[in-house]
Design a protein around this nucleic acid. Sequence first.
DNA 1: TGTACATCAGTGAACGCGCGTTCACTGATGTAC
DNA 2: TGTACATCAGTGAACGCGCGTTCACTGATGTAC
Lengths: 177, 177
Amino acid sequence: MAARAFREHGADSSGIGTVMKKVGLTKGGFYRHFQSKDDLFVEAVARALEDTGHAMEAVARAAPAGRATQAIIEHYLSAGHANMPGAGCVRAALGPELARKPLAVRRRIEVLLEAYRERLSPFMPGKTSEERIANCRLLFPSMAGVLMMVRVLPDAEKREQRLREAREFFLKTFAGL
Amino acid sequence: MAARAFREHGADSSGIGTVMKKVGLTKGGFYRHFQSKDDLFVEAVARALEDTGHAMEAVARAAPAGRATQAIIEHYLSAGHANMPGAGCVRAALGPELARKPLAVRRRIEVLLEAYRERLSPFMPGKTSEERIANCRLLFPSMAGVLMMVRVLPDAEKREQRLREAREFFLKTFAGL
DNA sequence: TGTACATCAGTGAACGCGCGTTCACTGATGTAC
DNA sequence: TGTACATCAGTGAACGCGCGTTCACTGATGTAC
């Protein structure tokens, strides 16, 4: 699936031919399904945000009462997430690439990010829904930044140590622990 | 300069031919100066981290006593920085690309990031130098994540609003304001 | 001071390659009568 | 039930293009004698 390839190798390094071959088709048939590569890109981002948003919501719902934010932070800043960018957060895997896309593409992506936010803001701290939304807009991008920089580290132990420090900070700041 | 082109368009979209032409040379001469494109990439990242680290240090030193962290946060999360990725932070412009580079490249980049951290951790909050370093490792990646997601937004007003919210949060959390 | 030689940054053509996109076509499927 | 036709997903070859890298060569510069 394209959603995985893009997050793993970046959109530029994932050719249409390769993606189509993985689905068992030739690249000529691509344009029966998508208008352009950017169109596929948006669809892939949509799929990825849908999947990871759904998974994250499940994590939050499965947490004991009052511990949803904690569960989200621990899940996001886990070694598993750091080691599997292809199945993980779009922000941490493609953030700057999103920002470089043409306006029309960014507009569509903005809508997708809003949907993700609506899905997860109920599990954020805050008395009003505005507060929860604002916290959502801070927590996920911040964790994404930390995660992407952790992924630069070659050493697994160092990664785990940085993740631990980050979990501690975000739990203290957003989950009152 | 390559450091600017990479941050503006990504490493894959900045060809050696284009970069050389901008310097006034033909692309054949490239390999008299660099072993490979990845080699140039590391040099460009080094240059960019040197420049932005130096500028950030100047901002911190120019701040009134006890307000260095505040000045750093306000400078990093400014509209100017959001609108000029080519001259800004490497993390926010190239983070996930760094993470995808081969091991040897990532090792060299890790060293460059450590140098940046040593330069700026003195201006971070914390009683011990370990605390300041840990805060440095949290603050910059977190702000980078926020900045890169702000850059996705097509609307200038929305960008400014998100930056304001983010400044408020980071100032409260890291500068005790 | 003048000549011979070595160095080496830069040139420009070529290499094989994969890219995004187009297009005339095939061939299976479903619909109409 | 059988025939004629329309639809349309998928094929495969071709398009022009730019990529990273190599290499034989040029030509200016500096050094040695």
